[in-house]
Computed example of a mutant assay.
Amino acid sequence: MTDRTYATPPAGLPPQTQPLTDRAVFTTAYAVIPKGVMRDIVTSYLPFWDKTRAWIISRPLSGFAETFAQYIMEVAPSGGSEKPEPDATAQAVLFVVSGTFSLTIAGQTHAMAPGGYAYIPPATSWSVKNDSDVPATFHWIRKAYETVDGIDTPEPFVTSDAAVEPIEMPDTNGAWATTRFVDPTDLRHDMHVNIVSFQPGAVIPFAETHVMEHGLYVLEGKAVYRLNADWVEVEAGDYMWLRAFCPQACYASGPGPFRYLLYKDVNRHPKLTRP
């Protein structure tokens, strides 16, 4: 689908001689989970997933993500699941970062490869099977769908990074662009999972402060990112969570493009009572 390469967890274990200092940060406003801590011993195994492990990098939790969960799934050859989703209210986005597998949604099978993207509505049957001889790795983002009377549930679709033309941000001459897999005005969707790209030296030129919660996984490159009152250096394979209204900005500091997979909750009224 694309000739790009995307970051994956390093797995394994670092040597006993490695210094313990790292870039991992967890605050009430943001978190940084650097690639160096995504190791074998922090993986999870999930019901009805065969030969599969997951790095769960965000989940609904007091003082952490409120609207979504995000996994990095690693499916070994002949692995997968016929019953992947236990929650009928959950919708999903899958984004492939390495390997290949078959994805069946509502009886239709799709060949998934790096850069492949799938949206799966709630209460929809789907399955994954790795028919190759190498592991397949993909992001699985889950959010409980918020129904609205008079608005239909979205339909499933499959596309890819390469198939969607990035949209340049205004007045940036293409230095900052967003690959939008869903029309922002389509109110059926209550979450967007996009890819944001910066050319070397490009910036977010103001401190964005908004109601959307964010999950950002760095697919390529490096940058210095403003999170609340702090500047942190991030690179391919790192993950960031930003609470709603956490100020954010960045500048791409590496020799190549800086790109990340971005989750945000959209198109719904804020809830006035908490569960």
Rank of each mutant, 00 (worst) to 15 (best):
Q16P: 06
L20R: 11
L20A: 15
T21V: 13
A24P: 02
V25D: 02
T27N: 05
A29G: 13
Y30P: 01
A31P: 06
A31T: 09
A31R: 09
A31I: 03
V32N: 05
I33L: 13
G36T: 12
V37E: 06
M38I: 06
D40Y: 03
I41E: 14
V42A: 14
Y45H: 15
Y45V: 15
Y45S: 13
L46W: 12
P47E: 13
F48R: 12
W49V: 06
W49Y: 10
D50N: 08
K51F: 02
K51E: 03
T52W: 04
T52H: 03
T52K: 00
R53E: 15
A54W: 04
W55E: 04
S58A: 14
R59H: 15
R59M: 15
R59D: 13
L61N: 11
L61D: 08
S62L: 09
S62W: 00
F64P: 02
A65K: 01
E66T: 09
F68P: 02
F68A: 15
A69S: 15
A69L: 14
Q70F: 04
Q70K: 01
Y71N: 06
Y71V: 05
M73I: 15
E74D: 04
G79V: 04
G80D: 01
G80L: 06
S81C: 09
S81W: 06
E82Q: 08
E82G: 06
P84F: 09
P84S: 12
E85M: 11
P86D: 10
